[in-house]
Design a protein around this nucleic acid. Structure first.
Length: 432
RNA sequence: GCGGCUAUAGUUCAGUGGUUAGAGCGCCUGAUUGUGGUUCAGGAUGUCGAGGGUUCGAAUCCCUCUAGCCGCCCCA
């Protein structure tokens, strides 16, 4: 038998999963909209040349490339990847945004604030909380170098975490320019700057001693490595960042914002502030971002400054699941408020009519499809956790009534149709 | 990319060379011909991941492949 697993590193989202995802995405959209960010969507795939060279060497390897089609596909004479593939699946949301901005500058506002919630694909090896298809929720502000941009992005992201019910998140802030100064002040050669940052990025994971060893392994002297690390450990000792000071002064003072000179972040396109959001019980981050004033210029047109934050939807969902942070109507979602029974094929038309009346009253109504025994129908309703059942059989039809049963209490009563509809409408509205 | 573990009913798992492969949960039927969630009685369900090998005999031992999980590397 062929495997019925979804492709490696991908997932099927069952109804309960979707309810949770939509709840979180709904809050993210609401908050971003309230800050004046506008939605953007870009294609699932891009021209290969749009994406190549934007993510460093590693990134290129992890891109899902799409084979050329028809006559253009000449496997026998292909010498390099570009001979075989001409398209690739979206690898992140930032580069497509940069392309859109470079391409449609004239159609976009001078300061373009956009959010984008779409899947991206990476041909990575899957691991816990890591997939080959996953969603990113990006929010970016294009066109201004003002620290007000950073402050607003941080403020919006913080509001999202508050609304979702997080009480222990921390925003760590650092500055790429300050990191460069830390490198030079420590006496590390400029050519080893990237190595120093890659090693520093692992501080949480491998500890101080581990970072010192890694710095030395990358050709940095013990003394320089020690000085570098002492800056990283102490915001007072480290060179001061004007940007961080300005951004912090613009935000309402909060112990959730932390100046952290040890924060590095992998991506090479950041040019100024870098941001990461952490919670204590998760090794990685819930969100990350920073300023990238050079990326849009890579498309060869105008150099336009930009800054953004990306929320890690999958990780937010994992933490919320583990902590039971979903409200009951999301965690215990049901497909309908009420189910209407069918006891006889002859009366099915009446069942459909009643269902339509209930829907007109604003209820979510499902109809049992077969004329099975009543016990079976009730059992089914119970398995769906539908709270109410309308029993509509011969005896009810003869009297022009309907039997309304509350599956949670087991109570039931025989009511005139319009009373049953009124009562259900009130019960469900009360709940909502 | 490297190392380790796993694959048996719908599902979670037991079964270390010997008849006809088991259990919990779930599912179906009945007690209850129109009343679920509890209970009781009964019932169905397997290419033992795929392919090859060893053996009188393989779910069990060996090899290959595939898939899943856990570390490392890297990343969100």
């Amino acid at each position: 038998m062929a495997s019925t697993n979804p492709a490696r590193g991908t997932r099927d989202f069952l109804p309960a999963d979707i309810r949770k995802r939509e709840y979180v995405i709904g809050i993210i959209k609401e908050v971003y909209e309230s800050y004046g960010f506008e939605p953007l969507e870009t294609p699932a795939f891009e021209n290969l040349e749009t994406l190549t060279g934007k993510y460093g060497e590693e990134g290129g390897q992890l891109m899902f490339k799409i084979l050329k089609r028809g006559e253009k596909l000449d496997i026998a004479n292909a010498k390099k990847v570009a001979d075989l593939a001409d398209l690739a699946l979206r690898y992140d949301l930032t580069v497509p945004l940069a392309r859109v901005v470079a391409d449609k500058r004239d159609k976009l506002p001078k300061f373009f604030k956009r959010y984008q919630i779409q899947p991206v694909w990476r041909a990575d090896r899957p691991a816990r909380g890591r997939y080959r298809e996953f969603y990113q929720c990006d929010v970016d502000s294009i066109g201004s170098t003002s620290p007000l941009v950073e402050a607003e992005l941080i403020s919006a992201a913080a509001e999202i975490f508050e609304r979702l019910g997080f009480t222990d998140y921390v925003f760590r802030l650092n500055d790429r320019k300050r990191l460069s100064k830390m490198v030079s002040d420590a006496g590390i050669e400029a050519s080893l700057e990237t190595d120093a940052m890659v090693a520093l990025d692992k501080l949480d994971k491998i500890g101080e001693e581990g970072v010192l060893n890694e710095l030395q392994a990358r050709g940095i002297s013990r003394e320089a490595a020690g000085r570098f690390l002492s800056f990283a450990k102490d915001p007072e000792a480290a060179p001061q960042s004007e940007t961080i000071a300005k951004v912090v002064s613009l935000l309402r003072s909060s112990d959730r914002i932390k100046d952290d000179p040890s924060l590095a972040r992998g991506l090479s396109y950041y040019t100024g502030m870098i941001i990461e959001v952490n919670v204590p019980d998760l090794p990685g981050s819930l969100a990350g971002g920073g300023r990238y004033d050079g990326l849009i210029g890579m498309f060869g047109k105008e150099q336009i400054p930009a800054c953004g934050i990306s929320l890690g939807l999958e990780r937010i969902l994992v933490v919320m699941d583990e902590r039971g942070m979903f409200p009951p109507e999301v965690a215990d979602s049901t497909p309908a408020d009420v189910m209407v029974t069918v006891l006889d094929e002859e009366t099915a038309a009446e069942t459909i009519k009643l269902a339509a009346e209930l829907r007109a009253a604003g209820l979510r109504v499902t109809v049992y499809p077969d004329a099975d025994k009543l016990g079976k129908q009730l059992k089914y309703a119970d398995s769906l956790k539908v709270p109410y059942v309308c029993v509509l059989g011969e005896s009810e039809l003869a009297e022009g009534k309907v039997t309304l049963k509350d599956l949670r209490t087991g109570e039931q009563e025989s009511l005139e149709r319009e009373n049953a509809i009124k009562k259900l409408g009130a019960a469900i509205r009360w709940k909502a």
